Amino acid sequence: MELSTITWIVLAGALATYLTRIGGHLILSRFKTIHPRVEAALNAVPAAVLTTLVAPAAVFTGPAETATVIVCALAAFYLPGMAVFVIGWAAVLAFRALIG
């Protein structure tokens, strides 16, 4: 039985994902200590990824999503992550019902 093109694409994607994850681990495990600048850059990655996901939603979608991003940004200063997630979920539902 021959594998379909989609199966090959999924397998290639899985392999690429695995290699990029294990590659970073192998490179960083060779060093006894990590330079403070490298550590600062690695610590900034989650915020950068989150920004690339949230910013387009705030700018290119409707006013309900933009209002939700603002509410979540304010809540993030005072509350833990899971609480901000719940507030964001409730806010987007409420704003979509009220604003449209």
Results as ranks from 00 to 15, higher is better:
Leu3Thr: 06
Val10Ala: 15
Leu93Ala: 11
Arg30Ser: 06
Arg30Phe: 04
Ala41Cys: 10
Asn43Phe: 09
Phe85Ser: 13
Val86Ser: 01
Thr52Lys: 07
Trp89His: 05
Ala90Cys: 14
Phe85Ile: 13
Thr68Arg: 05
Ile87Phe: 04
Gly62Lys: 05
Glu2Ile: 12
Val86Thr: 08
Ala47Leu: 07
Glu39Trp: 10
Val38Arg: 12
Thr66His: 10
Arg21Phe: 14
Ala73Glu: 04
Ile34Gln: 04
His35Ser: 05
Gly23Asp: 11
Ala75Asn: 00
Ala14Phe: 06
Ala76Phe: 11
Ala40Met: 11
Ala40Arg: 13
Glu2Tyr: 06
Leu28Asp: 05
Leu50Pro: 05
Leu42Lys: 02
Ala12Pro: 02
Ala76Met: 10
Val84Thr: 09
Arg30Val: 06
Val69Pro: 00
Leu42Asn: 00
Val71Tyr: 02
Ala57Thr: 08
Val54His: 11
Ile70Glu: 03
Thr68Tyr: 00
Ile27Tyr: 15
Phe31Val: 10
Val45Thr: 12
Ile34Met: 05
Val84Gln: 07
Thr66Ala: 06
His25Cys: 06
Leu98Met: 12
Trp89Asn: 13
Ala73Tyr: 04
Ala90Met: 13
Leu3Pro: 06
Val92Lys: 09
Phe31Gln: 08
Thr61Lys: 05
Ala58Trp: 04
Cys72Ala: 15
Ile70Asp: 07
Val69Ile: 15
Ala83Tyr: 02
Lys32Gln: 15
Gly88Met: 07
Leu19Cys: 15
Met82Cys: 02
Val10Gly: 00
Ala48Val: 14
Val84Leu: 10
Ala48Tyr: 13
Phe60Gln: 13
Met1Phe: 03
Cys72Gln: 00
Arg21Leu: 12
Pro80Ile: 07
Ile34Leu: 15
Met82Arg: 03
Gly24Pro: 07
Arg37Asp: 13
Gly23Thr: 09
Phe31Leu: 09
Thr33Arg: 08
Pro80Met: 08
Val54Met: 02
Gly88Leu: 03
Thr61Asp: 10
Val69Gln: 09
Phe95Pro: 07
Met82Ser: 03
Thr20Arg: 12
Phe77Pro: 02
Met1Glu: 00
Thr68Lys: 07
Gly81Pro: 09
Gly23Glu: 12
